[in-house]
């Protein structure tokens, strides 16, 4: 029996629906909200985990982490033989738990990247927003330049961002710094004369 459990998006009532095809359109009996549901074959797959097979012959390769289990594949990161239990499917790669751990710690494993800070946006805000209160740019323009230079070579993250924001921020910040140099070089002799 293939049942699909879900909550009505409007009234929150929990429903169970037997899967009879690849889609259904109907109204929730309690609130009348129309639902369109598309089903996919993953719903019909057994949700049991992998089971590692025991070694049968002495000549068979065994898992690096479980010496009594038969090796199912080789880790694409370190080359160690691993059993079905240790094999982690990372989309296009099959890795062992140790390589996954190391990849997560070093941030080199793309499918494990879950967060990204947009330093280019921070630099852009620091360069542009304080123009409303021009005197703030004396402090924020160097900060924007710092963020631009420090994170210029930073990995652009998982999504395509381009370098438009960081370049705009850099140009604005440099112009603001030049402006301040001009203003201060004009002001300093003037102030010095009054001392």
């Amino acid at each position: 029996m293939f049942n699909f459990h879900f909550e009505c998006a409007r009234c929150g009532m929990r429903r169970t629906l037997p899967v009879g095809g690849d889609s259904i359109v109907g109204a929730c009996p309690s609130c009348g909200a129309t639902h369109r549901i598309e089903f996919f074959p993953a719903l019909l797959r057994a949700s049991s985990g992998q089971r590692a097979e025991n070694l049968v012959l002495d000549t068979e390769s065994s898992c690096f982490f479980h010496p009594t289990k038969r090796a199912a594949t080789a880790c694409e990161g370190c080359g160690r033989f691993i059993c079905a239990l240790c094999e982690i499917d990372m989309g296009s790669q099959h890795l062992c738990p140790r390589c996954v751990e190391q990849g997560h710690a070093s941030g080199t494993l793309e499918p494990l990247k879950t967060e990204y800070t947009r330093y280019d946006q921070i630099a852009l805000v620091l360069a542009v927003l304080p123009l409303l209160f021009f005197y703030l740019t004396l402090f924020t323009a160097p900060m924007a330049i710092y963020f631009c230079v420090r994170h210029w070579r930073q990995d652009a993250g998982v999504l395509p961002h381009g370098r438009g924001a960081v370049m705009t921020a850099f140009v604005f910040a440099v112009l603001e710094v030049i402006g301040w140099i001009v203003v201060l070089s004009w002001l300093i002799p003037f102030i010095g004369g009054t001392w």
């Binding site: 998006a9 549901i37 989309g91 879950t114």
Partner: peptide
Amino acid sequence: TERYKRYYLKDIQALT
């Protein structure tokens, strides 16, 4: 900040 969640196409059971 951007936070990512990945849903592999082979694991998606239904869309409502």
